[in-house]
Design a binder for these strands. Structure first.
Length: 230
DNA sequence: GGCCAGGACACCA
DNA sequence: TGGTGTCATGGC
């Protein structure tokens, strides 16, 4: 066990409740279809969602927001469409590799894919070039409604500061911490990750303490109901 | 003009 | 195995 304190993880659900009461439901993922969620998961890598929306709008306008079209479009034709989301060359290649995976291995049938055991399809996703653990888990949770907790940079940053994690804890360790200390509930995992991102955008990143919430870190929206006291 | 965003990967010691 | 550089646009 690499975590700092075995007792603290018991508070993970309470922290969720504090965040939910403070911010309300986040209604993730904003994609309209499973495939759109998968595309968004690729495009949002290290990128603000507002930029991803522009690229998705470009794809939709070009009638390319579907598996069949993307499977047959040359990678370079994606460049101008994905440009607003940044890293457009890399993301064009990654999107193509993901699409080719579904197209070749599952004949473009996402329902077939998501019916397979979660451990199996997670491994398959991780073998696709351009899909790391966070992107794979985002696809599984938000597109496949699988009970998989998504760990991102905000999760690491926030829960390190709260003392739940040692610095440089691995993705798998952090994921295990949440999944072993929360009810196995897909809707809960969905909402919790979204709330963490919501909080992450809101808290002070540079200052260890702030005036609004003079504890380990502060949050302008939660105010006195800071999760530190949960 | 600088910083950062809902990461992943190649390369090197 | 772990650290570092690279990929890139748009908002604040």
């Amino acid at each position: 066990m690499k975590f700092c304190d075995k007792k603290k993880p018991k508070n993970l659900y309470k922290i969720y409740q504090v965040l939910f009461n403070a911010f309300g439901p986040q209604r993730w993922w904003p994609g309209k279809t499973r495939f759109e969620v998968i595309v968004g998961a690729i495009l949002t890598q290290n990128t603000a969602w507002s930029n991803v929306e522009k690229a998705i709008a470009n794809l939709r306008k070009a009638n390319a927001l579907n598996l069949n079209t993307l499977a047959n479009i040359p990678t370079q034709k994606l460049y101008p469409l994905l440009r607003p989301s940044g890293y457009y060359r890399i993301k064009s290649t990654r999107l193509k590799s993901v699409v080719n995976f579904f197209y070749n291995d599952y004949h473009g049938n996402l329902n077939h894919f998501f019916k397979e055991p979660v451990e199996k399809i997670r491994e398959e996703l991780l073998n696709v070039k351009g899909i790391g653990p966070e992107t794979a888990d985002s696809i599984l949770l938000y597109a496949g409604e699988k009970t998989v907790f998504v760990v991102d940079a905000y999760t690491r940053r926030i829960f390190e500061r709260l003392g739940h994690l040692k610095p440089k804890a691995s993705y798998e360790h952090i994921q295990k911490l949440f999944m072993e200390n929360l009810p196995r509930d897909t809707a809960l995992y969905n909402e919790y990750h979204a709330l963490i991102v919501r909080l992450g955008k809101d808290i002070c990143r540079t200052k260890p303490r702030c005036n609004i919430c003079p504890l380990v870190w502060g949050c302008s929206s939660t105010g006195e109901r800071c999760v530190r006291s949960a």
